[in-house]
């Protein structure tokens, strides 16, 4: 589903991501873990076509994001770390805008907006302007918009930040359901417990380099993911 091939991205000659390669298959949830500034957001932005001048390549369903970004973008959805949405639109207008862009039919959008709006208890607020929404409500709207066109791959940057426990639980269920239907999810998080319980695969990044990747069992063995992560952090610090 997602293939990151030797991704390298530098800002003013300072490498943010170095030679990162990663594969995520169909039906997989992959957690992307690393300290602040490790290169998680840069990697996610490269995957969704928000960054263009990087070395290496990113392919979604075999299509290169460099060669054919529009085809890639049609198959994915992206939730950034901060839900900066069009504050001058109402929630429903924003969702319709996203649905129009992705060519979602009237019947499908009505059904999905109802389904996910009710799930997140946001339906009654959809007519209100987004500038009246709380951070959590914007995050919920962003999640509904991401699921609206039934993308094959969903990339999320810290998706649980700002969500209340109930909404976080709903999101986890939605992620499972998405993958059971053949979709894939690649998301960054600092909440290691969530990653441990939710992910099939995990990738740990430090200073722009992928230090470990594999299935959850392979990576953590008998330890907790937190122990593995802290161990790896300690190892590299010692280096």
């Amino acid at each position: 589903m997602l293939s990151i091939e030797q991704l390298t991205k530098k800002y003013d000659e300072k490498p943010a991501v170095s030679n990162l390669s990663l594969e995520i298959g169909e039906g997989e949830i992959c957690g992307f873990i690393g300290h602040n500034g490790a290169g998680k957001t840069t990697t996610l932005k490269a995957c969704v076509g928000l960054l263009t001048d990087f070395d290496g390549d990113v392919k979604v369903l075999g299509t290169s994001v460099k060669a054919d970004p529009l085809t890639v973008k049609k198959n994915i959805a992206y939730i950034p770390d901060n839900p900066d949405l069009y504050e001058f639109l109402s929630g429903i207008r924003y969702l319709n805008f996203i649905a129009d862009v992705f060519g979602v039919s009237e019947a499908q959008r009505r059904e999905r907006i109802k389904k996910y709006g009710d799930l997140f208890e946001l339906t009654k607020d959809l007519a209100a302007p987004i500038n009246t929404y709380s951070h959590g409500m914007k995050q919920k709207l962003c999640i509904i918009a991401a699921w609206l066109h039934a993308p094959k791959l969903i990339l999320m940057d810290e998706p649980f930040v700002g969500l209340d426990p109930k909404a976080a639980h709903i999101l986890k269920n939605m992620m499972h359901e998405h993958c059971e239907n053949g979709g894939s999810i690649f998301f960054s998080t600092h909440v290691l417990d969530v990653a441990e319980k939710l992910c099939d695969r995990v990738a740990i990044i430090r200073h722009g380099e992928l230090v470990v990747t594999g299935s959850m069992e392979e990576v953590k063995g008998n330890q907790s993911l937190e122990d593995v992560f802290l161990e790896l952090e300690g190892d590299t610090d010692d280096d």
């Binding site: 001058f88 805008f97 129009d100 862009v101 060519g103 009654k124």
Partner: peptide, 30 residues
């Protein structure tokens, strides 16, 4: 101050538009 009174959403028929028209609508609203 609270920014605005809440508007209760009532489901209504939404017409599907082309991406260009939808973008134009967004620009007018901006």
């Amino acid at each position: 101050r609270e920014k605005s009174v809440k508007h209760a959403y009532k489901e209504k028929k939404e017409t599907q538009k082309s991406p260009f028209l939808s973008l134009c609508g967004k620009e007018f609203r901006r």
